[in-house]
């Protein structure tokens, strides 16, 4: 078992466990979302297709996970715009890359700067 496979499995188990815990009905989960309890991580997928991020704008919560999947035949990247504080680095055709959202960002592809997208944290 490769190291990355092991960690991915571990992550999957953790995600499932969190899902299970948050599905267990408890009174305090009825309080406002920001309140008590383990926040549930939502997962989103942004497809890169025909030189576009689809959807180009997405509204998420802090801690949610976004996976970018490159369906094009050319390499792209996903990079914070304009600060470049985070980047996927080169994402070749048919590969994917995931990030956990910490803040709202505009992003773009540094290889094709006409490609832009936006992550809004609500």
């Amino acid at each position: 078992m490769s190291r990355s496979y092991f960690f991915r499995s571990l992550l999957l188990i953790a995600v499932l466990a969190i899902g299970f815990i948050s599905c267990t009905p408890t009174e305090r989960d009825n309080s406002e979302e920001k309140g008590a309890g383990v926040p549930q991580q939502q997962e989103y997928t942004i497809e890169i297709k025909q030189m576009k991020f689809i959807p180009a704008e997405i509204i998420v919560h802090k801690g949610d996970k976004i996976t970018f999947v490159n369906h094009d035949l050319v390499t792209h990247d996903i990079t914070d715009d304009p600060g470049k504080t985070w980047t996927s680095s080169a994402l070749p055709a048919d590969e994917s890359w995931s990030m956990t959202v910490t803040q709202s960002s505009n992003y773009y592809c540094t290889l094709h700067p006409t490609m832009k997208g936006k992550i809004a944290v609500e």
């Binding site: 030189m51 035949l73 094709h112 006409t114």
Partner: peptide, 16 residues
Amino acid sequence: QNVVPALKAHLGHAEM
């Protein structure tokens, strides 16, 4: 047909 969007993005990039 798949290549056309890439060509158009290249054109936009070149114009930038």
